[in-house]
Design a protein around this nucleic acid. Sequence first.
RNA 1: CGGGGUGUAGUGUAACGGCUAACAUUCCUGUUUUGGGAACAGGCGACUCCGGGUUCGAAUCCCGGCGCCCCGACCA
Length: 419
Amino acid sequence: MKQSQLFTKTKKESPADEISLNAELLIRAGFINKEMAGVYSYLPLGLRVLKNIENIIREEMNAIGGQEIILSSLQEKSTWEPTNQWDDSQVDVWFKTKLKNDTELGLAVTHEAAITKMMKGFINSYRDLPKFVYQFQTKFRNEVRAKSGIMRVREFVMKDLYSFCKDEEEHNAFYERSKEAYKNIFKRIGIGHLTYITFASGGMFSKFSHEFQTITGAGEDIIYVDENKGIAVNKEVYNDEVLTSLGLKKEDMVENKAVEVGNIFTLSTRFSDALGLKFKTEEGDEKSVFMGSYGIGPGRLMGTVVEVLSDSKGIIWPENIAPFKVHLLMLGGDENVKIEASKLYEELNAKNIEVLFDDRVDVNAGEKFADSDLIGIPYRIVVSKRSLADGGFEIKKRIEDTGKIVNIDELFEFLGIQK
RNA sequence: CGGGGUGUAGUGUAACGGCUAACAUUCCUGUUUUGGGAACAGGCGACUCCGGGUUCGAAUCCCGGCGCCCCGACCA
């Protein structure tokens, strides 16, 4: 993509109404736009990152047997009444609305009940189990206090997968597989080294659950990490009984602030009992489906990456989720530079390398460098009179301070492309 | 929902109760530039969040509302 065509622009100044690093950098670099407190739109660069994150999650969900769907955002009151979750004293983050005829509706806070209800039409027999269904769908939560940029918002896309199994044993097998899938996701997104599977409270669903927590000062949770074992315990369930049951010792645990980037719950038969999702066993008995739920917020992940991996100059995207692989900068208005830069742009495109081409002719070198550092694309290639005189193109990784001059063959090799 | 802070061109800031609300940046015109947000000249852009009040006079003081940020509580 040519940067001259991109409708977003970078800003030199940080927004006055944002303190958090993720919002500051993402807004300055033109990835997101703030609509109101806790509500952000995704712009071309931000959407590319979000889609890359979603695709990694999608691949991992498909790999463990997930089938993708999209459930509706508008939900009936009756969907949530059997579990008593329509009640404002039970769930206080509803956005509720009405049809013209006064029928009450809710904007989906989550989808456990909706999918349980829907699956009644498709699951009848033990032969139909197990099934794993997921979606990327917007959740609306009327948080009393949105905060920390895109980390805690009122409207956000979540990947939520629901598992439907015939019994606890079958469920546990999938639950363990989902843990591995989640670890793969965080590793591929570039925060695996800072992300710990964390023993946590089960909320109102079950006694315990597992969270995936990424260590960062921007987090809202306190967790205790055993570095050697690679596992953590959330402060909310941090007690002797839990430590003993997990084989952990207090003296090995280090306190950290962390952000919850994913969680997995055993729902058991809470929803299937309440909503009547039953199946016939091999013996002809009727039994409730054993369920689990597995969430990840791609937007929050994007914010977490910014919090964890940026430097004083801007964002540093991991290659797997970067909006582009290469940022090609053309310096100066020299005719030969234009020709060489455009030629390289076409060649990289032909090799299916995603390139943001800064072809702007009226922008100074310094501004282009500053923009490039702020946007955070992993590889920067400079084409200028100087680079051409020195024998080609300057290539530099975003995480490195100095680049080197290479010819076209070396450049392709550097990027791992077959000529 | 408790507590604290804050609201002025698109953005970031300034302005003692008193002249036409200032500066920088963005943007537009032109010239010159092109390896770290370059230089010069000219120009556009504000119902100072909204509603009341005090005052000869309010961006400024007071009351109410709304927005936004932070701490806490909450968090399916």
